[in-house]
Structure formats: C-alpha cells, structure tokens
Amino acid sequence: MSQRQSGNLTRRAFCTTLTVGSVSGMSSSTTAQAETFRLGGEVAAWRGRAPQSIAEQDNPTLQVEAGQQYRVVWENVDGQPHNFVILDANDNTLSKTEIIQEQGATQTVTFTATPEMAQYICEVHPTTMVGEIQISGGADGGEMGEDGGVGLRISPITYLFAAAVVLAVISPILFALLLFVIGTGDRTRRVR
C-alpha cells in the first residue's frame, strides 16, 4: 500500500506532491487540461526539460496565456536547498513553495496565469536561478506594444543598475573637467 493510500502522508510524499496556487474548487478535468512545464533545479540555473520548446534551455522563458491553468513540475537535481517562487514586476511574491533540499525530490506548482506575473526564481539562488514569465492573451494580457506584442517589463533593479553604469562612466569625466578648471584657475593667478 502506498504512503498516500494508507492515510499516513510522509514528508517526502508531501514534498513530492506539493501544490501551490489557487487550486481550490478545481476539478480533476481542469487539472488534466493544465499545460505542464518541467524543470530541473540546480544552483547554476533552472534547466528546461519539457515541453520541447524549453528543453535543454537554462532559465527558459515560460510563455503563458492570461487566465489559463499551468503546472510547473521541478526536480531538485543537485541536493541543494531550492524552492520555486513566482514574482511580479516589482519583485513581490505571488506564489511560492517550501524550500526542499533532498536530491531527486520534486514539487508541483499549479497556477492561473495573470498579467502581474513577470518572473520565477529560487529564493535561495535568485541571481542564477531566475527566468522570465511572458504573458499573452486574456482580457488583461499585459501591455500591448505598437506591434501587438506584450510590452517588456523592466524591474526597478534594472533601472538602478543602468543608473549606476551611467554614473560610473560620467563621474571620471566630470572629475577630470573639475581638475582642468581648478588647474586653469591656478595658472592665471601665478602669472600676475
């Protein structure tokens, strides 16, 4: 008898079948229709496994349609602590799983795609295990560009990084100009 059938749900069985998101009231036929993305989680990146459009890609973009049900099934490949978190464009958590560390353990995240969804990460490794969620369709399917495509969402951290780069380039130039002006002023005083 399986761990589930006996009525005793072990920690491993729980982690293996963990479902996060708005699943209350969903029938089994709705769940069966949900498209499934399969990923492998390791410190270096999320590794796409299925469908074929994301297979073998590191941190693949998950293309979803607003209002549709989706599942992400991911496996802990390296035995390091990982979890799966869906964020909006302002880095607010929309959905997340518990952190699991057991190599080979899997988690399933079921969600309805919404226009707010922007990316998915591992909370423990947010700089390497990070992928985009691209939303299309639906009544509120994101901002439409002039060409009819979904507009690009830029996170506040990206703006901050761009400002830092601009300052890093401009500040030495401004400093050199300041030294030139000060140096020019000193020479005119000495000539008199």
Rank of each mutant, 00 (worst) to 15 (best):
Gln103Pro: 04
Val77Cys: 02
Thr110Ile: 02
Phe84Asn: 10
Ala168Arg: 15
Ala50Phe: 13
Ala44Asp: 15
Val165Gly: 03
Gln69Asn: 15
Glu42Cys: 05
Gln52His: 04
Val165His: 06
Val124Leu: 04
Val130Met: 02
Tyr159Met: 08
Leu62Lys: 10
Ala105Phe: 15
Val166Met: 08
Asn83His: 03
Arg153Asn: 02
Met144Pro: 11
Pro51Glu: 15
Gln57Leu: 05
Glu132His: 07
Pro156Met: 13
Ala118Glu: 09
Ser155Tyr: 12
Gly67Glu: 05
Met144Val: 15
Tyr70Ile: 11
Ser53Gln: 06
Tyr70Lys: 14
Ile121Thr: 10
Thr106Trp: 07
Thr110Leu: 02
Ser155Ala: 12
Gln103His: 01
Asn90Phe: 06
Glu143Ser: 13
Ile133Glu: 05
Glu123Thr: 09
Ala50Arg: 14
Gly151Trp: 13
Gly137Glu: 10
Ala139Ile: 08
Val150Ala: 11
Thr127Asn: 08
Thr114Cys: 07
Ile99Arg: 00
Gln101Lys: 12
Gln103Glu: 11
Ile170Glu: 14
Ala163Gly: 08
Val124Ile: 07
Gly148Tyr: 09
Asp147Trp: 10
Pro172Gln: 06
Ser136Trp: 15
Asn59Met: 06
Thr61Ala: 03
Met117Tyr: 07
Arg47Asn: 07
Val43Asn: 10
Val85Lys: 01
Ile54Cys: 08
Gln80Leu: 02
Ala66Asn: 01
Val64Gly: 01
Met129Phe: 00
Ala66Phe: 07
Glu98Thr: 07
Gln107Val: 11
Leu62Ala: 04
Val169Phe: 09
Val150Glu: 09
Val130His: 01
Glu132Met: 05
Gly149Pro: 06
Leu87Tyr: 14
Ala168Lys: 13
Gln134Met: 14
Gly142Glu: 06
Thr110Val: 01
Trp74Arg: 02
Ala89Gln: 02
Val85Gln: 00
Ala105Trp: 12
Glu123Ala: 11
Ile154Asn: 01
Arg153Trp: 09
Leu177Ile: 14
Gln52Ser: 12
Ala164His: 05
Gly142Ile: 15
Leu152Trp: 10
Gln103Asp: 11
Thr106Leu: 03
Gly141Asp: 00
Ser95Gly: 03
Val85Glu: 06
Gly48Trp: 01
Gln107Lys: 09
Gly148Val: 07
Val85Cys: 05
